[in-house]
Amino acid sequence: IRVTEDENDEPIEIPSEDDGTVLLSTVTAQFPGACGLRYRNPVSQCMRGVRLVEGILHAPDAGWGNLVYVVN
């Protein structure tokens, strides 16, 4: 998935696990201090948080898609 520190920055590609999840530790390896991800909902244009359970980030209902995710 494509992740950036700010919406206007160049994104970095972060690998997902075989089950489609992303480990928070993978994100923090590239973005120290990150505690989660958010993205701009293409329909509402509002920022939406990615579900985080026990250090594992779960894809939105429509999958990770071609969105750019921003670190929290």
Rank of each mutant, 00 (worst) to 15 (best):
Y69S: 03
L23N: 07
G49I: 15
S25Y: 04
P11E: 06
C46T: 13
V22R: 01
G65M: 04
V68L: 14
I14A: 04
E54H: 12
P11T: 08
G20Q: 03
D18Q: 14
I56Y: 07
V3P: 00
P32L: 01
F31G: 01
D18C: 11
I14M: 06
R38K: 14
T21D: 01
T26S: 14
T4C: 13
P32K: 06
Q30N: 14
N41E: 15
H58T: 06
L52P: 08
Y39A: 03
Q30R: 15
D6F: 15
Q45P: 06
A62T: 14
V22Q: 02
D9A: 14
P15S: 10
Y39S: 03
V43I: 14
N72W: 05
I56A: 13
Q45G: 13
E13P: 08
I12A: 06
I56H: 09
V43S: 05
V27N: 00
R48Q: 15
T26I: 06
E17A: 08
V27K: 03
L67C: 15
V70A: 05
V3L: 04
T28S: 13
R48W: 09
V68K: 06
N66F: 00
E17F: 01
H58R: 07
Y39R: 02
G20V: 02
R51S: 11
V43K: 06
Q45F: 08
T26N: 12
D61Q: 11
A34T: 06
E10R: 09
A34W: 00
E54A: 10
I12V: 14
N41M: 12
V50D: 02
G49M: 15
V53E: 15
G20E: 05
G55V: 01
P42N: 09
V3D: 00
D9R: 13
E13Y: 13
T4I: 09
A34I: 03
R40E: 08
S44V: 05
Q45C: 05
V22I: 07
G63Y: 02
G36D: 00
R40V: 08
P42G: 09
E10D: 10
R2Y: 06
L52V: 06
N41D: 15
V68D: 07
P32W: 04
N66D: 13
G63Q: 05
G33W: 06
E10P: 14
R2D: 00
P32A: 07
T28F: 07
V70R: 08
Q45S: 11
N66R: 11
E5V: 08
P11W: 10
A59S: 09
C35G: 11
N41L: 10
V3Y: 01
H58S: 08
L23I: 05
G49S: 15
I12K: 14
E10T: 10
D18N: 11
V71G: 03
V68H: 02
H58L: 11
G65H: 03
P11I: 14
T21I: 04
V68R: 07
P60L: 04
S25D: 10
D18L: 14
G63A: 04
A62Y: 15
V27Y: 00
E5G: 12
V70Q: 10
P42H: 13
M47C: 08
R48D: 15
L52A: 08
T28D: 14
G63S: 03
D19N: 03
G63N: 07
